[in-house]
């Protein structure tokens, strides 16, 4: 049994690796999809002299066939060497590393906030279906889902930073607590839409389970409401975890706008700057990083099924 589970996990990991490889090919092709001469694009705003072009061609192996170039790029990329940024002229790797902290902290905090608030709220509404509290939270979550994160961010800034002065307007702060304090508003802005989404999907999943026969049967044989709820949550966890995995992808989209709004030096704002500047090596590296995070999350979700759902476990073993 355990060996079969391990084999399943390895198979899924191999599939994820294959997917990443295919994605990297697409990412590398970005260089060629951009209009104009590749060498000129890579030179950016620097002086276009025949010598500079020749140097770039040699540096990037542009005279070799496409696949060889790809291999050359990939073998460096896996070691963290994504080449040099056109905009800053510095190495892409350290630049990325420098910006990762802020984004990871903002996104992580937002994710935590939305799950910690959204899941209990979703359960509470499902259990009190149709009552005033349910209606109120559902109405609020509709607003949350439909309000764009950057707009919420602007309102939060206006009220809590400019108006009340409780939080800083921009920047990242010094030290752990100060940094956390600086990240509260961006994280809340990002968590609003996300949390509302979590409320809605938790509510739907719990309500579906509450309507099942096994709940009636559990009550019909005298089990306590607490026990019944635990029963329901165990079975509702499967769809909830799936959707939480999908949310990670959504987080990265949202973080670009939030970081711009709050002037945070994270990956999101780096993405915005690099796209505007046609800084292709940086865009390539960023896209690959996002793809990596999203597919690793998907892998984690798939593996978590093994822990949560005995039916999936049985199927995985049989195959």
């Amino acid at each position: 049994m355990n060996r079969a589970v391990l084999a399943f996990a390895l198979r899924r990991a191999a599939a994820t690796l294959a997917l990443l490889l295919a994605l990297s090919l697409l990412v590398f092709a970005l260089l060629y999809l951009a209009p104009g001469d590749v060498a000129r694009n890579l030179l950016g705003t620097r002086n276009v002299t025949p010598e500079a072009l020749a140097r770039i061609r040699e540096l990037h192996h542009l005279d070799e066939p496409f696949l060889a170039q790809y291999w050359w790029w990939l073998s460096h990329a896996v070691t963290g060497d994504f080449g040099t940024s056109i905009r800053t002229g510095g190495e892409v790797g350290p630049l990325l590393l420098d910006r990762t902290g802020v984004t990871a902290a903002t996104a992580g905090l937002a994710f935590l906030l939305s799950v910690l608030a959204g899941v209990p709220a979703g359960i509470a509404t499902a259990v009190r279906r149709g009552r005033p509290l349910d209606r109120m939270i559902v109405a609020a979550s509709v607003v949350g889902v439909s309000a764009p994160g950057f707009a919420v961010g602007l309102i939060l800034l206006y009220v809590f930073a400019l108006g009340l002065g409780w939080f800083p307007v921009y920047g990242t702060g010094e030290g752990f607590l100060d940094a956390l304090w600086h990240l509260v508003l961006p994280a809340v802005a990002l968590a609003c839409g996300l949390g509302a989404f979590v409320v809605k999907l938790t509510r739907a999943a719990v309500i579906r389970e509450l309507d099942q026969d096994y709940v009636t049967f559990a009550r019909g044989r005298g089990l306590s409401e607490r026990r019944v709820l635990r029963l329901v949550l165990r079975n509702a966890a499967i769809p909830i975890v799936t959707s939480l995995g999908l949310m990670v992808a959504y987080l990265f989209g949202g973080t670009v706008l939030i970081e711009v709004t709050f002037a945070l030096p994270g990956l999101g704002s780096l993405m915005e700057e690099s796209v505007l500047f046609k800084d292709i090596p940086v865009v390539q590296a960023l896209t690959l990083v996002v793809a990596l995070v999203v597919s690793v999350t998907a892998l984690a979700v798939d593996l978590s099924y093994l822990a949560i759902d005995p039916r999936v476990r049985a199927r995985a073993v049989r195959r």
Binding site: R219, G220, L223, I308, R311
Partner: peptide, 30 residues
């Protein structure tokens, strides 16, 4: 009353047990 005096048994044995719990657990809760 339920459980110790009256118990309700349902029609469909495919849906009246929780899919995510072992049978022993489900019997043992009471």
């Amino acid at each position: 009353i339920r459980g110790s005096q009256i118990a309700l048994l349902l029609q469909d044995p495919f849906t009246s047990l929780s899919p995510g719990h072992r049978c022993g657990e489900q019997i043992g809760w009471a």
